[in-house]
Design a protein around this nucleic acid. Structure first.
Length: 193
DNA sequence: TACGTGATCACG
DNA sequence: GTGATCACGTAA
C-alpha cells in the first residue's frame, strides 16, 4: 500500500525515519520502474544544526518548509544528488535523508545508470542510490504520491533497528552526536561506515 | 588519505 | 561579484 500524506505530515521526524526502514521506494522514469527496500535513513529536524533549514528558509531549502510528503533533492559536492523526504506540517522544515536501498525491481536499469555490468553495491549510499534510481534535481518538490516517485508499505516487519550518529556533519557541533541515523541491523546493503 | 566538482550562501 | 564550504564516492 502506498504511503499517503498522513504518514509524512506527523510531527516526529525521528519516528518517521525509523518507520521508513523496510518500506519500498519506487521511481518511474519514462516507464522504467525501479524499486528498493529502504535500509538506512537519517532524520533532520529544523531545530538542530545538522539541518539545512536550521538558519531559516533559503532558495535551496524552501521546499522543506512545505507540508510533508514531497521530495527535497539537492546537489552535494558538485556531483551527487541526495534524496530526502519532507515531513511535518506546512511551515516546519523536517526531512528524512534516504541513505541506502536494497534493490528489488528494475536492477537492470540501475546497473545501466551506474555504468556497471554486474550486480554490485549500486545503492549503498545516498549519492549512489539517487543515481541508480534516476533521481535528480527535477524531483525537488515533487509530491510522493506522483507517478514518478512514491513509497509503499508491503507489511515488512523490521526486527532490529540500529541507531548511530549521522554521517558527515562535523560542522554541526554537538548536534552531530544525535543518534538519528537508522539502519536495519545486519543488512548487507547498508552503506559502509 | 586526497580530491573532484559546482551549487549555494554569507559576505560586501 | 567572490570565496569557503559541502548530509559523497572513488581511487590509492
Amino acid at each position: 500500500m502506498r504511503l499517503d500524506e498522513s504518514f509524512y505530515l506527523r510531527g516526529d521526524v525521528v519516528k518517521i525515519a525509523r518507520e521508513l526502514l523496510g518500506k519500498i521506494l519506487f521511481t518511474n522514469i519514462r516507464g522504467q520502474v525501479t524499486s528498493g527496500i529502504i535500509v538506512e535513513t537519517e532524520a533532520y529536524s529544523q531545530t538542530e544544526r545538522g539541518s539545512h533549514a536550521f538558519k531559516g528558509m533559503t532558495a535551496r531549502n524552501k521546499v522543506m518548509f512545505n507540508g510533508g510528503g514531497i521530495a527535497y533533492v539537492y546537489l552535494c559536492y558538485g556531483i551527487h544528488h541526495l534524496f530526502n523526504i519532507v515531513t511535518n506540517v506546512d511551515g516546519v522544515a523536517d526531512a528524512v535523508l534516504i541513505r541506502a536501498l536494497e534493490p528489488v525491481k528494475g536492477e537492470e536499469h540501475m546497473l545501466r545508470r551506474m555504468k556497471v555490468k554486474s550486480p554490485r553495491r549500486i545503492s549503498s549510499g545516498p549519492g549512489k542510490l539517487a543515481k541508480a534510481m534516476g533521481i535528480d534535481r527535477s524531483f525537488n518538490g515533487k509530491y510522493l504520491g506522483s507517478d514518478d516517485v512514491w513509497v509503499e508499505d508491503v507489511g515488512t516487519v523490521v526486527n532490529k533497528i540500529k541507531a548511530n550518529k549521522r554521517i558527515g556533519l562535523d560542522y554541526a557541533g554537538r548536534d552531530a552526536l544525535l543518534p538519528w541515523r537508522f539502519t536495519i541491523q545486519g543488512n548487507p546493503w547498508v552503506s559502509k561506515p
